[in-house]
């Protein structure tokens, strides 16, 4: 079972157990990826580390319900998320997970503020416009609220995508290599922002990275190694 963090009991947000995944069409017998068990409580943060080819992105997609595990279970907010199908899975994902991708992408025809309305709109929840706008102000984007997303700089894009991941207060925030394209200063700023916003929203935060600059900044880590020799820390 998941190990509670030292001295405190947390509400478990994410629990990953016995996960195995095999890409269809893989030829090698040992191409099956198996992942270490771990869990993440509300308000907790963890780093998912691993070199290229260890299946970091695969694990992230499994957790986000974008891939279906062959073996094992992904529990999210107390429900068997990994077993959900179709539209129910899409809606559950939208409601409980916010994702920051390595490269920020937006619906190009919409303004910055309208892009922040999307998560609420797509899950059928009411969107608090004032709150979304306050979030943008807090991230130093007050002057870009009604701008086209194409008018944003790289740094601004990453900040808006963080805002979009937290605006609907999901239980779990997944960040996929959020710093790999940034220099030291910007990487630090983005990580700080992520941690602060996740804490504020009361979300669990899982950052997938191979960026060693982040290692010493996080105590809790899951490390992926080459296939069939995975270990949890």
């Amino acid at each position: 079972m998941h190990a509670p963090a030292v001295g405190l009991t947390f509400e478990v947000m994410l629990d990953v157990k016995n996960l195995e995944f095999n890409y269809d069409g893989a030829v090698e017998a040992n191409s099956t990826l198996s992942f270490p068990d771990f869990s993440l409580a509300r308000g907790q943060e963890k780093l998912l580390l691993g070199a290229s080819g260890t299946g970091k992105t695969t694990l992230l997609h499994l957790i986000a319900g974008m891939l279906t595990p062959d073996v094992g279970r992904v529990m999210l907010a107390g429900e068997d998320f990994g077993a959900m199908q179709g539209a129910a899975r899409d809606r559950f994902r939208g409601r409980h997970i916010g994702i920051v991708f390595q490269q920020a992408h937006f619906v190009q025809s919409l303004t910055v503020l309208e892009n922040l309305q999307l998560p609420g709109l797509l899950t059928g929840e009411t969107v608090d416009l004032a709150e979304a706008e306050a979030l943008l102000v807090e991230l130093g984007l007050a002057h870009k609220v009604h701008s086209a997303v194409s008018a944003l700089s790289m740094g601004e894009q990453q900040r808006v995508s963080i805002a979009r991941a937290v605006v609907h207060k999901p239980g779990l925030i997944l960040a996929d290599e959020p710093t790999s394209a940034l220099d030291d200063g910007n990487a630090e700023a983005v990580i700080d922002l992520l941690r602060r916003q996740a804490a504020k929203a009361g979300s669990a935060l899982l950052i997938v990275t191979h960026d060693n600059r982040l290692k010493e900044r996080f105590d809790a880590r899951v490390e992926l190694v080459a296939p069939e020799k995975t270990a949890a820390k």
């Binding site: 974008m66 991708f101 619906v107 190009q108 797509l122």
Partner: peptide, 18 residues
């Protein structure tokens, strides 16, 4: 051109039908 954009909307809760 918008494949990524549409996939993104899926991750935000958009169902295929939507």
């Amino acid at each position: 051109d918008r494949r990524y954009e549409l996939a993104l909307m899926r991750t935000m809760g958009g169902t295929p039908r939507a």
